[in-house]
Amino acid sequence: MAKKTTIVLVDDHAVVRAGVRRLLEQEPLFEVIGEAESGEKAYQILAELKPDVMVMDLSMPGMGGLESIRRILMRYEKAKILVLSMHEDLSFANQALKVGAKGYLTKNTLADDLVKSIETVTQGDVFLSDEIAKKMAMQSISGNLDPVHELSAREFEIFRLLAEGLDIEAIASTLNISSKTVSNYQTMIKQKLDINTPIELIRYAIKVGVIKN
């Protein structure tokens, strides 16, 4: 009998986890062995459960998906993480791959691509939803790389949190780093994106799809 692929689901919405679990349980060779509602919890249970694949959302309270992936892979470099996100914007997909995610699946293609994406990632290959793959190809052809793609994963996460209205102290607490470090990152982000005020930062974040209007 073939070995089952073990999976842990990470999403702050229980209804999303339940829906994904239902889809996966229709596949005899998939087994969901755990769930987590935050990146912090995912980091904890990965060591205990050692799943073949971790399916993770990016937009979660706390340190968020990107930072969670970065920390997990720093400690468990062979972990296979598939991002399942509502974001169809290249900025999120690029950042997820930059920190080491093995795939990027959008929630609107979940039913069609979930099985294929997990099989692809399990085999060690990279999976991208068709729409994301097309956008990446178009960007590569046009050569028009938005400055937001030049941000490091840590800079991007702080950019996202600033755009969502968190102050420096709250971001420092969320990411478990000092306020001075956050302030330094904020300065670098503004320089890289050529923005000066909080309003400009929010407008830019809306333009590139990091937050919704």
Rank of each mutant, 00 (worst) to 15 (best):
I195A: 09
F127Q: 04
L166W: 03
Q191G: 01
I118S: 10
L58W: 02
D11M: 04
L24F: 08
I33V: 15
A42T: 06
Q191L: 07
L9W: 10
I118L: 11
T5L: 12
S142C: 02
S173Q: 12
L23R: 04
N184D: 13
E37F: 03
A93T: 08
Q123T: 09
K207H: 13
I199P: 00
T122K: 14
V20I: 15
I81Q: 10
L90N: 12
R17D: 09
L110S: 01
K102I: 03
S183T: 12
V8T: 14
N108V: 12
N196L: 07
S85N: 07
L66K: 08
V10K: 06
L46N: 06
D11F: 04
L49K: 15
R154G: 00
M63S: 01
L66W: 05
I141C: 05
V99P: 12
E77W: 09
D130H: 12
I189N: 02
T181I: 06
E157L: 02
I45M: 12
A205W: 00
N213D: 05
P51F: 03
K4F: 00
L193A: 05
G209C: 07
I158T: 11
M63I: 13
G34H: 02
I177D: 10
E119R: 14
S129H: 05
G64Q: 08
I195R: 04
V16A: 11
I132T: 09
H87Q: 10
T106D: 01
Y43G: 04
T181S: 13
S152V: 09
V83F: 07
E88I: 07
D125A: 11
P28D: 14
G165Y: 08
K107A: 02
E164C: 04
I158S: 06
D113K: 13
K102G: 15
G64K: 08
A79K: 06
M138T: 06
K134E: 02
A111L: 07
Q123G: 15
S179Y: 02
I69P: 06
Y185R: 05
E119K: 12
F156Y: 15
A111P: 01
V8A: 07
D112E: 15
Q26Y: 06
H13L: 12
M1D: 11
I81F: 07
L151S: 08
L23H: 04
P198E: 00
A133K: 15
A93E: 07
T187A: 10
A172T: 07
G34Y: 03
R75W: 00
S59I: 00
L193H: 04
M136F: 14
V15L: 15
V10I: 13
L82G: 05
D167E: 11
V32M: 02
I7M: 03
S68W: 06
T174R: 15
P198Q: 00
R21C: 09
E40L: 13
F30E: 04
A2Q: 14
A137K: 11
E37Y: 07
H87G: 02
G65E: 03
M1A: 13
I141M: 11
D125K: 14
V53Y: 02
T122F: 10
L66Y: 04
R154I: 11
K78C: 00
D113S: 13
F92M: 13
A36H: 11
M56D: 06
L201C: 00
L90W: 01
L9C: 10
I168R: 11
A172D: 05
Q123V: 03
K50F: 01
A47Q: 12
N196M: 03
F92L: 01
G100M: 09
E157Y: 03
A47W: 08
P61L: 11
I195V: 14
